[in-house]
């Protein structure tokens, strides 16, 4: 049995090395343009300049959820196809997804203080994101405590799938719980009610954050492949010492 199939990851490494500079450049360019558009975007008639926090908060929420989506696809790759890169992808996505979820929570709190008068309200959306963040922390804890990467990859894949099944249920129950306890939220943002002068910069920022996610993800996957290569080389070395 091959401990780790190195042929495929090697090809992936050359691909990453070729693509990564372009990705970094594209991310920087889109971020620069997005921030320029954000600076020029008008204030919201109700929320004033604090609407500028939205350009960070909303992409953070999207990518926090997308991170779990990446982990779910990677989990299927690990369990169903046994693809050697799948658990590398899953493991690399976990801290990045947790980071973006944290961005969503922190900016949400900083947005809530001027708008709601308090850093935290048990608003349905914030609460769902909080539970998502807890799930991410559980996933990171699982990776931290496991020694054998193969074993932890399988366990993490199962947890990712269970989480993917549960996240909609959690979202639904938190919404239900919230309407039971808090009939109306202070700030309402209708999806279609956003004006193009705000929506376009938001979409550009979302694209910038998405590019950032994949740049970081590719780089983290490269690290993980190298880490496993180091591990297998050390095991070879340990095997050879007595001979």
């Amino acid at each position: 049995m091959a401990v780790i199939d190195l042929a495929n990851p090697t090809r992936f490494l050359t691909l990453v090395n070729r693509v990564l500079p372009w990705l970094i450049g594209a991310t920087a360019l889109v971020f620069a343009y997005g921030l320029y558009r954000v600076a020029g975007a008008p204030d919201d008639y109700q929320q004033g300049a604090t609407v500028k926090i939205m350009y960070l908060h909303v992409p953070g929420a999207w990518l926090g959820m997308m991170g779990w989506g990446v982990m779910t696809v990677a989990a299927l790759g690990t369990l169903v196809w046994r693809h050697p890169l799948a658990d590398v992808a899953g493991k690399a996505a976990a801290p990045i997804g947790a980071g973006f979820t944290f961005i969503c929570l922190a900016t949400g709190m900083l947005w809530g203080r001027p708008m709601w008068g308090t850093y935290w309200v048990w608003d349905a959306r914030l609460t769902s994101v909080l539970v998502l963040f807890l799930l991410y922390l559980g996933m990171l804890a699982l990776y931290w405590t496991a020694e054998d990467p193969n074993r932890s990859a399988r366990a993490a894949a199962i947890l990712a799938l269970v989480g993917a099944v549960n996240i909609p249920i959690i979202k639904f129950s938190v919404d239900w719980w919230n309407t039971l306890h808090q009939p109306a939220s202070v700030v309402r943002m209708g999806g279609a009610a956003i004006d193009a002068s705000i929506l376009v910069p938001l979409l550009i920022m979302a694209l910038a954050f998405t590019l950032l996610f994949f740049t970081l993800h590719f780089a983290a996957m490269r690290n993980e492949i190298l880490r496993r290569r180091v591990r297998s080389m050390r095991m070879m070395q340990a095997r050879e010492v007595p001979v």
């Binding site: 699982l142 496991a146 549960n166």
Partner: peptide
């Protein structure tokens, strides 16, 4: 089951399981 395959238990189990029980607690 996850804890036994990782040969860990106790707190890891609570950290993994508790967020998933949010809906049960709510309802």
């Amino acid at each position: 089951a996850l804890a036994v395959t990782l040969r860990r238990g106790g707190l890891l189990l609570a950290v993994l399981v508790l967020p998933l029980t949010v809906p049960v607690l709510i309802f």
